[in-house]
Every structure is written in C-alpha cells, then in structure tokens.
Computed example of a mutant assay.
Amino acid sequence: MTSESRDESRTTVPSNAHLSDEQASARSGRGAGASELSVDTRENPVVAAPLPPLPETDAAEAAARPVAGPPLEIDADQESALQSPEGAEPASAPSALRLTQVTKSYGGTDAVTEIDLTVPSGAFYGLVGPNGAGKTTLLSMIAGLLSPTAGTLEVCGVDLRKHPREAKKLMGVLPDRLRTFDRLTGRQLLYYVGVLRGLKPGVIADRTNDLARVLELTDALGRVVSDYSAGMTKKIMLAAAMIHSPRLLVLDEPFEAVDPVSSETILGILSEYVRGGGTVVLSSHGMDLVEQVCSRLAVIVSGQVLAEGTVEEVKGSATLTERFVELSGATGDVGGLEWLHASSN
C-alpha cells in the first residue's frame, strides 16, 4: 500500500472509538504488520528492487537509466548523533573513528588486544607496524569485514556493531588484496558500486569521469578490470571507495604496487579530500610517506598499540624509521650467511 493510499484511508475510515473491540484489535494488528514489512523492505533495498542492467561503456546510456529503489539514507535516530538539535548550542563534531578495548581472537590467540584509538575528524591518520602485527585485522574490523571478539567501534558517532548499515554508509574502504568483479569493465564496476551506494546514474557517470580523469584511467574504463595492472586495479578500487563521497576512508596499503607518479597523484587526491573535511586512515610500510603526509599515527606491534600521537611525539629525537625499528624489536642480525659470500666458493 502506498503512503498516499494510507493517508487517504486515515481520512475516510471512522476512528476506533466507533468500532467493536474485536474490530479495533484486528485493525491495529494489520497496521503493525504493515509497518514491520515496510521496515524489512527498506533494510534490504536490493532484494525489494533488483538492480538495473549494467551499462555499456557509453556514459550517456548510463545517465539515461533509472535508479533501482530510493537512495540510501541515514536513519533519523542515527542522524541525531551527527547533528545538533534545532535551536540548541552546536555540539562538537564526533570523532571520525573511536575504538574502545577492541580485541580479536582466533582459537584463543589474540591477533589484536584491547586497542583504544581515537581518530579526530579531518585527520590523515597512519597505522604502521611490522608484518603480522595485526594492522590488516584491525582495519578489517574498522571496515566491518570482521566482527571484533570484544570492544566497541564508532564511526562518526555511530556504533558499528549496533548499526552496521548506517556506519558503513559513512565509509569508503580499500582492503589489501581485495578480490573484485574483474570481469566487468572499469566503468561498469564503478556504476555497480555507485548503484549499491544509492547514487543516481547521472551522478555516477559524472563522478566516474572525474575520478578516471584525475587517476589517469579514462582510456581504461572500457577494458575489463582483469586486464588491468596491479597499480591500475588499486586505482580503480580507490575510485570505487570514493565515488559516494564518504566521511571516512579506510585504506590498507593504498600505495602498494603503485608507481611513483601515480602515488603522487593519489596523495594529492587524498590530501585535498582531507582539506575538505574528510578523514583518512591508512596502513603503510613506507615510513617516509607516513612522516610526510600523516598528522597522527599509531605503531602496532603484536596486536597492541605501543605508541600513538603526532608524528613528532612518536618519533621523538630519532627518525620515524629508527623509532619504528626500536618499537618493533627488530635485531638486524644478518650473521651466519657467510656461505653466500663469493670468497667462500
């Protein structure tokens, strides 16, 4: 039943005061059932309205197609957590990301142990640590790809465990070594992601062209993603993470397998995004890169945060690389390989 027909029914049907108890009870029961059904439909818009067919490579055709279902919106209850009530004093904006006692265990072994982190809005935040330190596990929990064993995660004030849909709408995610729909062309992939994010086809086409231009992917949009190089794949997935203009970007090794020229381009895009009020959380093994662009960082070793703060606070009087090596406990022992020396042959 449409909203118009429900409104009409309210004006033409007498009030329950003129009905018998049984009639009023039955009518009340039907109304409750309809409300529950409508909520379920909105919770799964893809099921309620199948996606339109993927476009050809021509952007004009994509712009002409209708959208499947209404755009996704933040629930009113959750929006109140992000905005001050009308007439009230403006409250300080919530942190872009807040982790409280977050733990992830596998078979009794903690991959991440009781991590507390607060990432302020508008920050360029780095997560660094040796291989196997738990960075990818932590980022996967932030992105909602893994559920924590314990603890809470909040994205712009929205509890990720209690309201995962609302929290995920605020994020763009680039996981490391993510498998994607690589039999689609680049343009089709971005269209598919855009529709899932609730964007109109015309908006998707415009943003696809803009992102492809700055990422130097325009000539590749008509090719299937499986034919892309590792660096091009990274860039098309970054475009997919940004197409819905999220408040928070979660990027796991965004510069891995990307050439220096493309790295500078991506850095420029992310820096402009942060200057516009967005927040970036990324992991990287490049200490020079982290020191250059990050306003804050955390050093994670064996699933625990050993240092956190501004770059200057973390590195102290040493270089960031020296401080990283010190915290990670690397010994630098390269002895015992004399058999590799040419003189030993």
Rank of each mutant, 00 (worst) to 15 (best):
R179C: 02
Q83R: 14
I269T: 07
E73Y: 07
F181I: 02
A143R: 00
G336V: 03
S226R: 15
S245F: 03
R296L: 10
N44P: 05
S20M: 05
L221Y: 05
R98T: 10
G194E: 04
T233Y: 08
S35M: 12
G198Q: 11
E338T: 13
M237D: 00
P164M: 01
T113D: 07
G194P: 06
T208I: 04
E166R: 04
E89L: 15
K104R: 15
G87V: 05
R177A: 12
A230M: 14
E79S: 15
S84M: 11
V195T: 01
A205I: 05
L196T: 01
A81N: 12
R42A: 13
T109E: 06
E312C: 05
L99H: 03
N131P: 04
L248H: 01
S105H: 07
V128D: 01
A307Y: 11
V225G: 02
S121G: 07
A62S: 08
A93E: 10
D259Y: 12
L184G: 02
A143S: 08
S271Q: 09
G222I: 09
R197C: 09
R187T: 10
D206Q: 08
A17H: 03
R296C: 04
D288S: 15
G107F: 08
G335N: 04
G151R: 11
G309R: 11
K315Y: 08
P260N: 11
T208P: 01
V280C: 03
A239P: 11
G276R: 03
R6T: 12
A143W: 02
M242D: 01
T279H: 00
S283T: 14
A307S: 15
D259C: 06
S328V: 12
P14W: 03
D206A: 13
R179M: 09
S328H: 10
A239Q: 06
E326C: 04
C156P: 00
D176A: 11
L146K: 08
T233N: 09
P52N: 06
D159H: 04
L282M: 14
A63E: 05
G198A: 14
S121H: 12
A68P: 15
C294T: 07
P90V: 12
D176N: 13
M141T: 04
G134N: 05
V128F: 05
R177Y: 04
K162S: 14
L174I: 06
S80A: 15
A123S: 15
A307L: 08
G222A: 12
G202T: 01
A143M: 02
S38A: 13
I300H: 03
S3L: 14
P71E: 09
L190I: 06
M287K: 13
L54C: 13
I243Y: 00
T265Y: 04
Q292P: 07
E56G: 14
P260R: 14
R179K: 13
P66L: 09
I142P: 00
G231R: 10
E312Q: 12
L238P: 03
P175Q: 12
V290F: 01
D210Q: 10
R165G: 10
S95L: 06
I204A: 08
